[in-house]
Every structure is written in structure tokens, then in C-alpha cells.
Lab assay of single mutants.
Amino acid sequence: SDEELKKRIEELVRRGNKDEARKLAENANSDEARKWWEKLEQL
């Protein structure tokens, strides 16, 4: 689900694993996940 995906992306970003988070968001084929990633990346 998008919610689970967003949690995983956020967790990866928090751990400093941005590349992994980006790949996850891009491969998810989910606009919501991509937007979430872009938002987190700004922080």
C-alpha cells in the first residue's frame, strides 16, 4: 500500500539512505510515493 511504502521511504531517508529511498519511490510506480520522496528530500 502507499502508506506502507511512504513509511519505508521515510525510514530510509531518516537513516541517511537516500539513494535506496529514491529507488524505492521510483520503482513503486506510485505518484504518491514519488511526491512523498520529493518532499522528504527537501528536508
Rank of each mutant, 00 (worst) to 15 (best):
Arg14Ala: 11
Glu3Lys: 07
Lys35Ser: 11
Lys23Gly: 03
Lys6Trp: 15
Lys7Val: 06
Asp31Trp: 07
Ala28Tyr: 06
Arg8Pro: 00
Asp19Gln: 07
Lys7Ala: 13
Asp19Arg: 04
Asn29Leu: 14
Lys6Ala: 05
Glu26Asn: 06
Gln42Asn: 09
Trp37Glu: 03
Glu26Ser: 06
Asn29Lys: 13
Glu20Trp: 03
Gly16Met: 01
Trp37Phe: 15
Lys7Asn: 11
Asn29Tyr: 08
Lys6Leu: 15
Gln42Gly: 10
Glu20Leu: 09
Ser30Gly: 05
Leu43Ile: 12
Asp2Trp: 15
Lys39His: 14
Trp37Pro: 01
Glu38Leu: 09
Glu3Gly: 07
Trp37Met: 13
Glu4His: 07
Val13Ser: 02
Gln42Val: 08
Asn29Trp: 09
Ser30Phe: 09
Asn29Thr: 09
Asn29Gly: 13
Lys6His: 08
Arg15Asn: 14
Gly16Asn: 03
Asp19Lys: 07
Trp36Ile: 06
Glu41Ile: 15
Glu3Leu: 11
Glu10Tyr: 10
Glu38His: 07
Glu20Val: 03
Asp31Tyr: 08
Glu20Gly: 05
Arg22Pro: 02
Glu32Met: 10
Leu43Glu: 13
Ser1Ile: 15
Lys7Gln: 12
Arg22Cys: 05
Ala25Tyr: 06
Ser30Lys: 03
Leu24Ile: 06
Glu41Ala: 14
Lys6Arg: 12
Arg22Val: 04
Ile9Val: 04
Ala21Tyr: 01
Trp36Ser: 02
Lys7Pro: 00
Leu24Ser: 00
Lys6Ser: 05
Lys35His: 09
Lys6Val: 12
Asn27Val: 07
Trp37Thr: 02
Leu24Arg: 00
Ala21His: 00
Ile9Leu: 09
Gly16Val: 01
Gln42Ile: 09
Arg34Cys: 13
Asn27Arg: 10
Ile9Arg: 01
Glu20Tyr: 02
Lys35Gln: 11
Val13Thr: 01
Lys39Arg: 11
Leu40Thr: 03
Val13Asn: 02
Leu40Gln: 05
Asp31Gly: 06
Ala28Leu: 15
Gln42Thr: 09
Glu3Tyr: 11
Glu32Gly: 05
Ala25Phe: 07
Glu41Gln: 14
Val13Tyr: 15
Glu4Lys: 06
Lys6Asp: 02
Glu3Ala: 10
Ala25Ser: 04
Val13Trp: 15
Ala25Val: 15
Lys7Glu: 05
Val13Ala: 03
Arg15Ala: 14
Ala25Cys: 11
Glu26Cys: 04
Glu41Pro: 03
Ala25Trp: 11
Lys35Ala: 13
Gln42Asp: 07
Leu40Pro: 02
Arg14Cys: 13
Asp19Ala: 08
Arg8Ser: 04
Ala21Asn: 00
Arg8His: 07
Ile9Pro: 00
Lys7His: 09
Gln42Ser: 12
Arg15Val: 10
Arg22Lys: 13
Arg15Cys: 11
Trp36Cys: 04
Glu11Met: 06
Leu12Met: 05
Arg22Ile: 07
Lys35Tyr: 07
Leu40Ile: 10
Asp19Tyr: 05
Lys18Glu: 06
Val13Phe: 15
Ala33Asn: 03
Ala28Asp: 03
Glu38Arg: 05
Ala33Asp: 04
Gly16Ile: 00
Arg8Cys: 11
Lys7Phe: 07
Asp31Arg: 05
Glu38Trp: 05
Lys39Phe: 14
Arg34Tyr: 12
Arg14Ser: 08
Asn27Gly: 11
Asp2Ile: 15
Glu32Trp: 15
Arg22Glu: 04
Ala28Arg: 04
Asn27Glu: 14
Lys35Glu: 12
Arg8Lys: 11
Ala25Glu: 02
Leu43Pro: 05
Leu43His: 08
Val13Asp: 01
Asn29Gln: 12
Arg14Glu: 07
Arg34Glu: 03
Glu11Asn: 04
Asp2Phe: 15
Arg8Asp: 02
Ser1Tyr: 13
Leu43Trp: 10
Glu26Thr: 08
Leu12Glu: 04
Arg22Asn: 03
Gln42Tyr: 09
Glu41Cys: 14
Arg15Lys: 13
Arg15Phe: 07
Asp2Val: 14
Lys18Tyr: 15
Ala25Arg: 01
Arg22His: 06
Arg22Met: 09
Arg15Gln: 14
Lys18Gln: 07
Asn17His: 14
Glu10Ala: 10
Asp31Lys: 06
Ala28Met: 15
Ala28Asn: 04
Lys6Tyr: 14
Glu4Pro: 04
Ala33Ile: 15
Leu40Trp: 09
Leu5Arg: 01
Lys6Asn: 05
Arg14His: 10
Leu40Tyr: 11
Asn29Met: 12
Gly16Gln: 01
Leu5Trp: 12
Ser30Arg: 04
Lys35Ile: 12
Leu24Gln: 02
Asp31Gln: 10
Ala25Pro: 00
Glu26Lys: 05
Leu12Tyr: 04
Ala21Cys: 02
Glu32His: 06
Leu12Thr: 01
Arg22Leu: 10
Asp2His: 11
Lys18Met: 15
Asp2Arg: 08
Arg34Ala: 05
Glu3Ile: 09
Glu32Lys: 06
Glu41Arg: 09
Lys35Asp: 09
Leu5Gly: 01
Ser30Gln: 05
Glu10Asn: 03
Ser30Asn: 10
Ser1Ala: 12
Leu40Asn: 03
Glu10Met: 12
Lys7Trp: 10
Lys39Gln: 13
Asn17Gly: 03
Glu32Pro: 05
Lys39Val: 12
Trp37Ala: 06
Asn29Cys: 06
Trp36Phe: 14
Ser1Asp: 12
Glu38Pro: 02
Ala33Val: 15
Leu12Pro: 00
Arg34Lys: 10
Ala33Arg: 02
Lys7Gly: 06
Ile9Ser: 00
Asn17Pro: 00
Lys23Arg: 12
Val13Lys: 01
Glu10Phe: 07
Ala21Gln: 00
Lys39Pro: 02
Trp36Asp: 02
Leu24Thr: 02
Gln42Met: 12
Arg15Gly: 12
Arg14Met: 11
Glu26His: 10
Trp36Lys: 01
Leu40Val: 08
Lys7Asp: 05
Glu32Ala: 10
Trp36Gly: 01
Lys6Cys: 12
Glu3Phe: 09
Ser1Asn: 12
Glu32Tyr: 09
Lys18Cys: 12
Asp19Met: 05
Glu26Gln: 12
Asn27Pro: 01
Glu26Ala: 09
Arg34Thr: 06
Asp2Gln: 10
Trp37Val: 14
Asn17Ile: 04
Leu43Phe: 09
